[in-house]
Design a protein around this nucleic acid. Structure first.
Lengths: 212, 212
DNA sequence: TAGATTGTTAATCGATTAACAATC
DNA sequence: TAGATTGTTAATCGATTAACAATC
């Protein structure tokens, strides 16, 4: 709820603002103008001011923006103060990478369990969580409030798990497979990570560039 | 070289067309209209026709498009017939996921080596490649033609490796870190995968939705 | 031929950039 | 106060959608 009518273009730029502002803040920079920030981020000053003004007037004429304040505002806008409870499905290399290297607490999430259908994986320790058998998924979700699921399993395995998750009321997904969740369930909210699409784009660009 | 002036919006949609057409092809569908394809892909028929016509007239009035032919055309446009030679830097969980689960040959690439600076990783087998010590990187790249590097290492480690790679003439990168390659070297071609930006976007959308 | 569907132009819509008055 | 820089409106640019003549 709350603010709406913000375009996806703007929304997808917010994390980037947040990253650059966090960095400036760590470097103890305490104020910055839209012109300077735009320069660092390699965008236009107009865009910076337009983007920020979607959410409110965070600056001060003649002065610029307070770095730490603006960073906090964007953190609030992104909702990073949340602790959305997540389950991870799949403890393969990708699942492990996600479980072990993401700072979920800084990103608005808390990873509370991981499930895999491969008996060899059961019991493995990923930071502070232990891989559970997928057979325990439904029971677990009924007894623990879950907001979202991270799907790090092959496409062919998605449908069966998705049906279970959806019927348990989980409607938010971070999806690393090519399975099209939104087509099956229209009232879901899905962020897809399509690594192979990304790599094909690199291929296209290499193929059409002069960098040898 | 070749076709230029194609907008990034169109380019980033190409892999998705390719995926859907490959699927239709596997299902032995041999022709499809822009209307039907648009429906399946959840876009407009106008967009499908406009996108495809950036590259040529692949359809036939009154008939539609030949699925297998169109798929092959897009494959060619994307340059997936290439065999760009890639080195992977970093054999952590993410590097392993990339090395073991991506079908590089179908994506225009060939992974020919992997390097890591952690002695514990040296000698590990990732499909048909063996993890080598990072100290051998430069020597290896001087004796093997390399087109691109996949960076699956923490941000703090990137700069040192990047400097080496760039000086060896490698200018194409698939970058999983938040290190800003293009700012340091302007004549590079970079595809970034920013998993945490993606997750923050999910957080924003959950925070602003009514799905609880 | 009649029906279907493309390729392409024109119209609309949205996003980015420029400009500047307001104001700290 | 003078200088700097925002917030915001207006102008431009690009991307998407609609429409339809061409044609298989």
């Amino acid at each position: 709820m709350s603010k709406d009518g913000i375009s996806m273009s703007v929304i997808r730029r917010l994390p980037r603002y947040y990253r650059f502002l966090s960095e400036l803040n760590e470097q103890n920079v305490d104020r910055i103008s839209s012109t300077k920030l735009a320069e660092i981020m390699n965008v236009t000053a107009s865009q910076v001011r337009q983007d920020l003004n979607c959410f409110g007037g965070f600056g001060q004429q003649g002065y610029g923006y307070s770095v730490s304040q603006l960073k906090e505002e964007i953190k609030k806008i992104l909702g990073l103060n949340n602790n959305y409870r997540a389950v991870l499905i799949g403890a393969g290399n990708l699942g492990k990478a996600v479980a072990m290297h993401m700072n979920f607490d800084r990103l608005g999430f808390e990873l509370i369990a991981c499930f895999d259908n491969n008996p060899a994986k059961i019991g493995e320790q990923l930071n502070d969580i232990t891989v559970k058998p997928e057979s325990e998924l439904e029971e677990f979700c009924r007894h623990n409030h879950i907001d979202t699921a991270f799907l790090c399993i092959p496409r062919a395995c998605v449908e069966a798990v998705l049906d279970k998750l959806y019927n348990l009321g989980i409607k938010n997904y971070w999806n690393f497979s090519h399975y099209d969740i939104a087509t099956r369930y229209h009232d879901t909210l899905v962020e897809n990570v399509h690594l192979s699409d990304n790599l094909m784009t690199l291929c296209y660009r290499m193929n059409n560039s002069k960098n040898q």
